[in-house]
């Protein structure tokens, strides 16, 4: 097991390195007047020149790449471009925490819902319940997150007024439940996108398991249906669910740019978006790497969980 983890981590570092080079190439090798964009179109040329110099944008490329690597190894201690004097770490930290809260809350809602929904649909395959779950899931998962965000904001936040329509105006003295109310709407938007997706994955996995010979064996032993599901079906059926949930972490942490914009929520995706537009290169690179690292850790965790659930995967990777 330790070898598996070591191998995976090494591979991840290699992948991160590829990513780093790609981002560096994209932002620095291709010509774009970063200092001019930062200073604004009407700033005097000498200010632009000074800025170019200060930010080290005129240094040779290898030197710039070395600085980037240094930033990576010191976990973002360098300054950001757009807010001089503020380290990248100080900007990423709170955004990451905000994203984590949002993702955590939405997962607490959509994971149990979609697992139960998926298993129920698989058990009663082609029933009305199954068709309902599948169709609702397909529809809700189709809608882009910012669109369901806007729709929820309007219907629940504005028309019904049940929940705060934006997440930015949390009172300073807000308790746990009050702050929860402020992120519930964007979380619900995520739930809408993911419920259908995860439920369909679970359903597909569970259908295979319900049709498997060993499930027949379990029924033939005289087990009750609920025991068959608990002891024989779940463990095998949920492996794809775990794998897919792992791969979605990158998107949940870094891809909800639109949704965060709609609710004015200060998450990681929005921060990276602003960094890209500025352009704030150190912040952009740090943000991108953070998301990639989260993705890699999440997929690693998912694989470990699967190895725990499935002894075949365990021995296959050990060999």
């Amino acid at each position: 097991m330790a070898r598996l983890i070591a191998r995976r981590l090494l591979l991840s570092i290699f992948t991160l390195f590829i990513l780093l080079i790609a981002v560096f190439a994209l932002t620095r090798v291709f010509p774009s007047d970063i200092a001019r964009q930062l200073a604004g179109p009407f700033a005097p040329q000498e200010r632009v020149d000074r800025l170019n110099d200060e930010l080290g944008l005129l240094d040779p490329l290898p030197e710039q790449f070395w600085r980037l690597l240094k930033d990576v190894f010191t976990f973002g201690s360098g300054d950001s471009f757009s807010q001089p004097g503020v380290s990248v770490r100080e900007l990423i930290g709170p955004a990451l925490w905000n994203s984590a809260k949002l993702v955590g809350l939405s997962m607490l809602i959509f994971l149990p819902l979609s697992i139960v929904g998926g298993i129920l649909a698989a058990r009663r395959k082609d029933s009305r319940l199954d068709r309902g779950i599948v169709s609702f899931g397909l529809a809700s998962a189709s809608i882009p997150d910012f669109v369901s965000g806007v729709l929820l904001q309007f219907f629940i936040g504005v028309q019904l007024g049940w929940l705060p329509a934006t997440s930015s105006s949390v009172p300073d003295d807000a308790g746990f439940f009050t702050s929860l109310r402020f992120i519930l709407l964007p979380a619900l938007a995520i739930v809408l996108v993911y419920f259908g997706y995860i439920a369909r994955i679970t359903r597909a996995g569970a259908i295979g398991v319900f049709e498997a010979d060993y499930t027949r064996t379990a029924y033939m032993k005289g087990l009750k249906p609920i025991e068959v599901i608990r002891k024989h079906v779940l463990r095998n059926a949920l492996q794809p669910t775990v794998a897919v949930t792992g791969t979605q972490m990158g998107y949940l942490f870094g891809g909800l740019v639109g949704l965060e914009t709609v609710f004015n929520y200060p998450g990681l995706g929005g921060l990276i978006f602003k960094a890209a537009k500025a352009p704030d290169l150190p912040l952009l690179q740090a943000g991108v790497l953070t998301v990639a690292v989260i993705f890699m850790l999440a997929t690693l965790a998912a694989d470990l969980l699967i190895a725990w659930m499935n002894p075949r995967a365990r021995t296959a990777t050990e060999a």
Binding site: T27, V257, A276
Partner: peptide, 23 residues
């Protein structure tokens, strides 16, 4: 596989934003 994995580890929207900012 290695190269595509690097790209798959980031959300498409983020990568697209970076490319569109440059080009």
């Amino acid at each position: 596989s290695r190269i595509s994995e690097a790209f798959l580890s980031l959300p498409v929207v983020l990568l697209a934003i970076m490319v569109l900012v440059v080009f």
